[in-house]
């Protein structure tokens, strides 16, 4: 049962990876990377339970937080960069 769940999560991770490599736009890649991270959280929880690590849930929670914050930070980074490049482009044109 546990093994089936782990395999299923791994398959979805693989699909997310395929989308991240193929993804025509940056948003596809970002979304794929983010969902890959979410699946990793599940994998840590399942695998930690299967291999009976101690405090694996703490690690899974931490990973979920890191994943979310990193996604928001990367999106912010591109947003500010686009805004700055737009203003710089406008100044050089005028």
């Amino acid at each position: 049962m546990l093994l089936a769940a782990i395999v299923a999560v791994m398959v979805t991770m693989l699909l997310a990876l395929v989308r991240a490599f193929l993804g025509p736009t940056a948003y596809d890649r970002m979304l794929a990377a983010s969902s890959f991270g979410t699946k990793t959280v599940l994998l840590i929880a399942l695998g930690g339970h299967a291999m009976s690590w101690h405090s694996y849930l703490d690690v899974a929670l931490l990973y979920a937080m890191v994943n979310f914050v990193a996604t928001v930070a990367v999106m912010r980074f591109f947003e500010y960069r686009a805004a700055r490049e737009a203003t710089e482009g406008g100044e050089s044109a005028s």
Partner: peptide, 11 residues
């Protein structure tokens, strides 16, 4: 390592 290296350092 996960909190410092992967989380905050990236940001």
């Amino acid at each position: 390592e996960a909190a410092v290296g992967a989380g905050v350092s990236t940001v």
